[in-house]
Design a protein around this nucleic acid. Structure first.
Lengths: 109, 109
DNA sequence: CGCACATATGCCGGTCACCGATATATGTAA
DNA sequence: TTACATATATCGGTGACCGGCATATGTGCG
């Protein structure tokens, strides 16, 4: 699972949102670091629906603009929980090893 | 940064290792979950060298077999530290949101 | 002696997530 | 009427990763 996908699922984790709102939510979660392109967004949403991670909760029209509201499926919530557990473990191990790393250039100062 | 790359840098974080040892180390770090293919391994090592993340520490011959020993460059260590900080933050946010998620089917039992 | 297996490195073609661009359409503000 | 925010969608290209293949030596087994 790559970061755009991880952020997408995270943005859906607390409550259902529509596509455009997801773009903004992902940008906010990542402190503006990750800006989802529409190609990535809608492509990923389709794929995640095929995989049973996400479903369309409802379709609505607000101010004459059509919206699809997506929700995190139970399977998506499980996958997200597993993924976060995995990457936390790897991050912990990476930090442990970095601390063990022999320092090179005058880091002792 | 994808998981294979993250695990590779992690496997190099504490001390230099040669290719085959990296495959084993990555498998161990991930509890056997991730088995690096040689295509991924040597491809990634080349790419990471181009990017200044990894360098060849030395070449040696052990039992008639040639080895290249790879080391994490300072830039690679910085990148790894930044990456772990990023994913920890995202993992934390994902877990916070999952906890906020409205439960559906009799989870209260 | 021959076979399988671990060690060790490397190439090549395919797939797929992601990127960048483009298209379409409506509401609001200058 | 021009520009921008909102909102969705498609398409071609790139590149990391996968799976398979090739190559070569050392060790253990029958």
């Amino acid at each position: 699972m790559q970061e755009p996908t991880l952020l997408l699922l995270t943005a859906l984790a607390d409550e259902p949102r529509h596509g455009y709102a997801l773009m903004q939510e992902v940008a906010e979660i990542s402190n503006g670091r990750v800006r989802l392109r529409t190609g990535t967004l809608y492509g990923a949403l389709e794929r995640l629906q095929r995989e049973g991670m996400v479903r369309v909760e409802r379709e609505e029209v607000v101010d004459g603009r059509a919206r699809k509201v997506y929700a995190l499926a139970d399977q998506g919530a499980s996958a997200l929980a597993e993924e976060t557990a995995r990457i936390r473990a790897v991050a912990l191990e990476a930090e442990r090893r970095l601390a063990l790393r022999p320092r090179l250039k005058g880091v002792t100062a």
